[in-house]
Design a binder for these strands. Sequence first.
DNA 1: TACTAAATGAAAAAGGTTTTCAGTTAGCAC
DNA 2: GTGCTAACTGAAAACCTTTTTCATTTAGTA
Lengths: 147, 147
Amino acid sequence: MVYTEKRIEHALRQGGYKITPQRRTIINAIIHSHEHLTPAEIHERVRREHPGIGLVTIYRTLEILAELGLICEMHAGGNCRSYLIRRPSEHHHHLICSDCATVIDFTDCDLGELERRLSKETSFEISGHLLEFVGLCRKCREKTMAG
Amino acid sequence: MVYTEKRIEHALRQGGYKITPQRRTIINAIIHSHEHLTPAEIHERVRREHPGIGLVTIYRTLEILAELGLICEMHAGGNCRSYLIRRPSEHHHHLICSDCATVIDFTDCDLGELERRLSKETSFEISGHLLEFVGLCRKCREKTMAG
DNA sequence: TACTAAATGAAAAAGGTTTTCAGTTAGCAC
DNA sequence: GTGCTAACTGAAAACCTTTTTCATTTAGTA
Ligand SMILES: [Mn+2]
Ligand SMILES: [Mn+2]
Ligand SMILES: [Zn+2]
Ligand SMILES: [Zn+2]
């Protein structure tokens, strides 16, 4: 199941939220990006099509979309959240170099069994997970050796 | 191998950093807490013993300790980082309720094989990982059903 | 004891996020 | 269509966390 524009609008209506031009534009920006976007980045993109839109509106819309489980919130280092549309087929994780911040995506996390066990033990209904590995990439390791 | 005060001080010296009363107090606060502490929380605790210490000093010390790999940096929701001393024996992860923010710790993540494979495929030297599950706890599920 | 690089704290600056509020609009009833 | 109302928007201000700057102090060493 992939979240299309239509589906997302339906979910919004279900939740008692209105469909506004601003929200449509924001949703589109997130759907059409395969990158994790920060609120500021989304604002920048949305502005091209909808100048005058406020950054506040981005925040408010993101909050609703996250609450409805339509987008994933990510927390990387620093203090920048970023958001990605929830695409089950593109579920992925990150391997991050702690030195140069290079990011490598990987898709197979294989956490199903762990998830089932945790769910059973804790009575949680688990809806998602965040997995990140941190380490040193080859370049940075070689740099360290040399220095 | 557990990070004791002595060991941490040794690591600091190795790195060319000085041991100050302020740093000692900060390290102690982190060592003696089994909770994840935010910089502000650490400041609050450290103040009791060392009034007048600046929040800046907390930030600067945390940066060094993280750089030396002596503490783990965590990124939960919101924009609050938190830190925990690195205790290999207490390596753990979180299951977080997206509604009421209840946190349940779990220890067995079993990511060794995945880590080895990623390391091989990417030539990264992996030093750590972050794993969090998000879902709804029983109480919140029941609340939703009822409402 | 004297020296120097490193560390500290106050204050200001910088970011990111949230709140407030007056004006606007989507969705619905008629 | 017309009107109504709750929801939404944008500007500005408030809020919080984190970083930078700079004058002063201190740890570690000679
Ligand atoms: Mn990615
Ligand atoms: Mn914990
Ligand atoms: Zn690197
Ligand atoms: Zn809950």
